[in-house]
């Protein structure tokens, strides 16, 4: 039984078909990588799943319920967590408070005007921070965190929603190679433990082949290959895209 199921998804901007006829699904605990050259339509596809863009054709279902057409907020409410390519955290709050916000939102306690935030879900927030290895930084401002720590904080915030599906857009962009592998292995472990389906885009092929269970290859808006690491490596169409027309751009 898959968590996320995408059927015949399509989107065009003006006359340009950015994504067309894309179908795939992700199972609980599975890590699915979405790769492809620049301009292949990865971000468009990603934003249609996350609710930032509305598709022209096709459907997105989460656990059997349709989520395409909903906005990002409603999609989040359905149990989709996400991290952004450029880290987005609440700069005027501490690391712990960032996670508390996700927990408060998940438990529908946002519209409270009286109780102090300091008394709400502090322990749960610390537990999540411990999972991503940030417990020592709980009191610090997000503005002073190292970049790798910010990425881990985003992961903890996304987990605060108790997501069934985690969307990670370029999760390791801007990180040192050693940190990249550590972050994705952490994600791998959390996904397995919690049965979360993970869909991520990634430019670093080492990371992709290291952690992804399955890989989707997108080129000019269409899926050209799907399979595990060795199969994708051996696929002639993928080799043509990466080595032929677009080699050296990564």
């Amino acid at each position: 039984m898959s968590v996320l199921s995408v059927q015949g998804l399509g989107k065009s901007f003006g006359g340009v078909q950015a994504v067309s006829g894309v179908s795939f699904s992700v199972a609980p605990g599975e890590m699915l990588a979405l790769i492809g050259p620049n301009g292949a339509g990865k971000s468009t596809l990603f934003n249609m799943v996350g609710g930032q863009l509305q598709p022209d054709a096709g459907s997105v279902t989460l656990g059997g319920a349709t989520i395409s057409g909903l906005g990002p907020r409603a999609v989040a409410r359905q149990g989709v967590g996400r991290t952004f390519q450029i880290t987005a955290t609440f700069g005027s709050m501490t690391v712990r408070e960032n996670v508390q916000m996700a927990l408060l939102s998940h438990r529908r306690e946002i519209w409270c005007f009286w109780r102090s935030v300091a008394e709400r879900f502090g322990a749960e927030a610390d537990a999540l921070l411990a999972q991503v290895g940030l417990e020592a930084q709980a009191e610090r401002a997000t503005g002073v965190l190292a970049y790798g720590d910010l990425k881990r904080l985003e992961l903890a915030v996304a987990l605060g929603n108790a997501p069934r599906l985690l969307l990670m857009d370029e999760p390791t962009a801007g990180m040192a190679p050693a940190e990249r592998v550590a972050l994705m292995q952490l994600t791998r472990r959390l996904a397995t433990e919690r049965g979360i389906a993970v869909l991520f885009t990634e430019h670093d092929m080492d990371v992709v082949f290291d952690v992804a269970d399955r890989i989707l290859v997108l080129d000019r808006g269409a899926l050209i290959a799907e399979g595990d690491g060795p199969a994708i490596r051996a696929n002639p169409a993928v080799r043509a895209v990466y080595l032929g027309t677009d080699a050296g751009s990564h």
Binding site: G50, Q52, G71, P72, R73, A76, R77, G81, R82, F84, A88, T89, F90, G91, S92, M93, E97, Q100, M101, A102, L104, S105, H106, E109, I110, W111, C112, F113, W114, R115, S116, V117, A118, R120, V157, A158, G160, N161
Partner: peptide, 29 residues
């Protein structure tokens, strides 16, 4: 002041700090 230190005030500030992130955790900006 009380409202600003309550979940509502924090959420309001969250929406200011990062609107995409606020929406992504389900806040009604």
């Amino acid at each position: 002041r009380r409202a600003l230190y309550a979940p509502y005030g924090y959420a309001l500030r969250a929406a200011r700090d990062s609107t995409p992130r606020a929406r992504a955790i389900g806040l009604d900006v």
